[in-house]
Nucleic acid binder design. Structure first.
Lengths: 147, 147
DNA sequence: GGAAATTTAATTGTGTACAATTAAATCACG
DNA sequence: CGTGATTTAATTGTACACAATTAAATTTCC
């Protein structure tokens, strides 16, 4: 029954479940992120900034796998909400330094229970989650090394 | 060294590698999809249509996890390229039936080697890919059952 | 020291995603 | 039979995502 077009079936692809799953999880975040008025992209950006306090756009992009075309509007929005400051460095005027404000650090307090809330509503076993994490890292490494 | 904010680190999230990996894989498709002038979304839509020949927007959306807000412009674009026809059904004028054209089926021939090309440039072991697939299905099921 | 190359972020343009609303068609049910 | 509820796709509005280009600052290298 197999024919040469079987490889083009959605069910035989790894990429599609990955793509669908990613969107689905982000969708699950929405109700909780709505409570603190952040989008998912704004949220992961704040996660990096909460941890590092200060970072330039290039570094942020490398960590988040996003380019300035995506980050510039996100960062302007976060600045507008009062969570970050955007300033050029003295040493190199090209570099834009993004730093968390007082207000931004307060937001962290309201975000700290989101991961648990999400864990509660997704409910994958810790073993499976661990396995998945390892495989995703592996796949990501595969992708990057063949660059 | 652990503090209560550790849960908010990017590295402790499952969702972020999922999100980043998904985007990275789609990015890897781009050069090959460019050759047949399809975007990734257009490609997965065509995959469903190649297999089923004909399908309405609602069914397509259920398979692809996309709503009409996303599908309508994608399908109009595919129609414009000559790969699909869009017609209302006689029995129920609300339902839009999307069917592949001759031209659309010809495109399948040009797409058939894309999965192999991608496999070549990503190079995850079949065992890992299989394991990943199982876990993604599981995670997707978790998401949906807690709906 | 200065022109060419490089780096950095912003801008532009196209294409998703998705929530919310709209509008038309169909269905349900009193 | 007819009206209110439901279903279906399209539309509207907001927010990514990313390739390609631009512009300014810095570095390289002669």
């Amino acid at each position: 029954m197999a024919d040469k077009y079987d490889v083009l079936k959605l069910e035989n692809q790894l990429c599609f479940p990955l793509y669908a799953c990613s969107k689905e999880i982000v969708r699950r975040y929405k109700p909780f992120l709505d409570e603190i008025d952040l989008t998912y992209t704004q949220y992961i950006t704040m996660m990096v900034l909460w941890e590092h306090r200060q970072m330039n756009v290039k570094e942020l992009g490398e960590i988040l796998y996003l380019d300035s075309g995506t980050l510039t509007p996100v960062l302007k929005k976060l600045e507008q909400k009062g969570y970050v400051n955007r300033t050029r460095t003295k040493e190199d005027e090209r570099v834009l330094l993004v730093s968390v404000t007082e207000e931004g650090m307060k937001l962290r307090e309201r975000a700290v229970d989101i991961p648990a809330k999400l864990g509660g509503c997704i409910g994958m076993s810790p073993e499976d989650a661990e396995q998945m994490y390892i495989l995703l890292k592996k796949l990501m490494a595969c992708c990057e090394e063949s660059e």
